[in-house]
Simulated assay, not measured.
Amino acid sequence: MRRLAPYQSGLWLAEYGDIRCQLCRIYRSTLQSQLPQNHSSAIPPNNHSFFTNLRQHINNRFDSGLLCSHCHHSIIWLPKTFEVDIAAGTVLSIQAATYYDYPIRQAIRAFKHHEDMTKLPLLLHVLRQLPRPHGCHQDNSVIVAMPTTNQRLVKRGFDPVSILAAQLSKHWQIPLWYGVERIDNTVSQQGLTRAERLSNLNNAFVLTETPPVKRLLLFDDVATTGASLQALGRALYQPATNTASASSLPTNRYHLSAYALAHGSQYR
Rank of each mutant, 00 (worst) to 15 (best):
N46F: 08
V222S: 09
A42H: 03
N47K: 14
G233V: 02
T210G: 02
I43W: 07
L201V: 03
D220K: 02
S188K: 11
P250E: 07
Q138K: 12
L123S: 13
L127P: 09
G264D: 06
D63A: 01
Y178K: 14
Q189W: 03
T225C: 01
G135A: 06
V180E: 12
A5H: 12
Y16D: 00
C24D: 04
E181H: 13
L229Q: 05
Y16M: 05
H72W: 15
I104D: 00
L124F: 03
P239D: 04
L122W: 04
L168G: 09
I174E: 09
A231M: 10
Q95Y: 08
F111C: 04
R182W: 00
R3G: 07
T210H: 09
H57R: 15
T98Y: 07
P6V: 07
V187Q: 13
V84M: 05
L176I: 12
L11V: 14
H255T: 15
W177G: 04
F50T: 04
T149H: 04
Q138P: 01
L153E: 04
K155A: 13
G226F: 06
G191S: 09
I143V: 13
N200C: 01
A97N: 11
Q95D: 00
P147L: 09
R61P: 08
A145G: 12
D139T: 02
L120K: 03
H137Q: 00
I86L: 04
L164N: 11
S33K: 15
R132K: 13
R215G: 01
R215E: 08
H134P: 06
I58K: 14
F82R: 11
A235G: 10
A107L: 08
